[in-house]
Design a protein around this nucleic acid. Sequence first.
DNA 1: CCGAGAGTTCAACTATTATCGAACCGTGCC
DNA 2: GGCACGGTTCGATAATAGTTGAACTCTCGG
Lengths: 106, 106
Amino acid sequence: MPGARDLPHPDAASLVLTDVLFALSDPSRLALVRRLAQAPLEVSACHPTEGKVPKSTLSHHLKTLREAGVIRNVPEGRHRYVSLRREDLDDRFPGLLDAVLRATAD
Amino acid sequence: MPGARDLPHPDAASLVLTDVLFALSDPSRLALVRRLAQAPLEVSACHPTEGKVPKSTLSHHLKTLREAGVIRNVPEGRHRYVSLRREDLDDRFPGLLDAVLRATAD
DNA sequence: CCGAGAGTTCAACTATTATCGAACCGTGCC
DNA sequence: GGCACGGTTCGATAATAGTTGAACTCTCGG
């Protein structure tokens, strides 16, 4: 199998609550998570809706979310798909993601 | 009125989600919140169950939690009572606190 | 095979947070 | 009043997180 440009993802059972909370505690990351809750996105589509950010900055935020187990970031051809790990989060921390998403976006 | 050694607390309506998440994202603060979920405590009782911490450090954590609106810290005679702002949090972010508290403590 | 496109990683810098001693402030008791 | 006690605030330092350009990797199309 030629692919294998995979990034490390923690498995569902080993997610740490404080790491998840921290990852979600940044407004720009939370805004992205909200968008991912509607549909997966390519990395290039993960840029904030207003004002562009350097790709290294975006990549860093994606890393924080990925290492906390909030998102999955998988290669797909020449692109990458970013998606919310909704089931894993619901399984490990029932109700948490829903509560966060339900809160009024400030 | 003699009292008036009151610290500022944000009102329920103005709580900011990311600030709350950040306040809860620290293990020692979260551990304290878990204990406060069972009963209010005096500040002196807020020290971690194992190993003591300088009072200035504890006070700093209390400040972070208070400014995020997670706890209330009110003077009571010579002591201070620290309590969880459960209703305010439930009102502003329904289900959030429950989900956090329900998650297995690591 | 070479170049362009999509993203991550690296390294350096800045900014925010944590930690802790020391100074300070109220309160209650003598 | 004076003093011990419970806590917060201040100030300095250490640690962690955010930002960004440049270098690097991989994939696809010619």
